[in-house]
């Protein structure tokens, strides 16, 4: 099977085979980061532009390193001090960057659909690094990769995604990917943070983490995104932590091999206690390492799909 997709805009657009192809490729690339010289020439002569219109630490660094490990040249755009503040449109900014000979654009933006718009207007490959509340496909991939690595399979694996489902692009990408690969997903959180329509995606809804935690193999605790909430959707962080935070008691109720995940950055004491975050069940740092391999895989595959055959 050959990889033919030109862009990575979301996991909704990928089929099961394409998802597996990215995961398998990431598995092959993981070894590169264990070498003493952590660099391969696969993207030599290619240029990757990172366009981050929203703050990011780990995703931006992970994309940078992924491009560098594959020997690509890298340019970065910072929103502050750019021509956007002089009134230039998004498409003009992106077109100007493309005119410098860029092959791939990684874009993060607070508006859903920006990567799709760029894909329509630019010739280079577009990678969605998070668009509003829509999708964050590489985070979804690295979460799925980590579950597969830990449990050996995704078929029949029961995953609980806990927290702010309404505002979470991570949840959406995880749901699209996990369901296609045979996992069962339950979303857990306060009713104000779970839109009822989410059930149409094929997930179960739970408002009780204490019950759900007993039945699942994986719990993925999402960050409470204060910046995306127009108003408070729960009375207090303290109450949220009491009802939906992962703590020692909930860990005891769960299977002893429960896989605990968090896309970061963690609000310790809110989504999970420090004890859980640092427990042997936690794979949070593995997620970060795997993110690098998954992003390298995406670059590698998209680079190939730019070839006319």
């Amino acid at each position: 099977m050959k990889w033919t997709k030109k862009h990575l805009l979301g996991l909704k657009d990928l089929d099961r085979n394409e998802l597996n192809m990215i995961l398998d490729t990431a598995e092959g690339l993981k070894e590169v980061s264990t070498r003493s010289i952590k660099k391969v020439p696969a993207l030599q002569g290619r240029t990757v532009a990172l366009l981050f219109f929203e703050p990011s630490t780990r995703t931006s660094m992970s994309f940078q390193l992924a491009a560098q490990r594959l020997s690509a040249d890298l340019i970065q755009f910072n929103k502050s001090g750019s021509s956007l503040s002089k009134g230039e449109t998004l498409i003009d900014t992106a077109s100007n960057i493309e005119a410098m000979g860029v092959d791939m654009v990684v874009v993060r933006h607070s508006c859903p659909g920006v990567p799709q718009i760029l894909a329509k207007h630019l010739n280079c490959a577009i990678v969605n690094a998070g668009d509003g509340c829509h999708e964050h496909p590489t985070q979804g991939l690295l979460d799925i990769f980590t579950i597969r690595e830990k449990l050996g399979t995704l078929e029949g694996v029961k995953v609980a995604i806990v927290g702010d489902i309404r505002h979470s692009r991570v949840a959406r990408s995880n749901i699209f990917g996990l369901l296609k690969l045979g996992a069962k997903v339950t979303v857990v959180g306060p009713p104000t943070l779970i839109p009822k329509s989410i059930a149409k995606m094929g997930v179960e809804i739970s408002y009780n983490l204490d019950e759900t935690i007993k039945k699942v193999d994986v719990v993925n605790c999402l960050r409470i995104q204060m910046e995306r909430q127009g108003r408070s959707n729960f009375p207090s962080l303290r109450e949220y932590a009491l009802l939906f935070g992962m703590n020692r008691d909930r860990l005891k109720k769960a299977s002893k091999n429960l896989v605990v995940m968090h896309p970061g950055p963690i609000n310790r004491g809110v989504e999970m206690t420090a004890e859980v975050a640092d427990s042997k069940n936690s794979v949070i740092l593995q997620q970060v390492s795997n993110g690098l391999a998954c992003r390298m895989a995406v670059f590698y595959l998209l680079n190939g799909s730019r070839i006319d055959v």
Binding site: E27, L29, E31, N303
Partner: peptide, 23 residues
């Protein structure tokens, strides 16, 4: 060893998938 990442035709052909990796 998987030489896919070192091939001289990497920009001229669809990528080898899955990448089996170097072990």
């Amino acid at each position: 060893i998987d030489v896919s990442l070192y091939r001289d035709d990497i920009h001229k052909r669809l990528p080898d998938v899955p990448l089996e990796g170097t072990d």
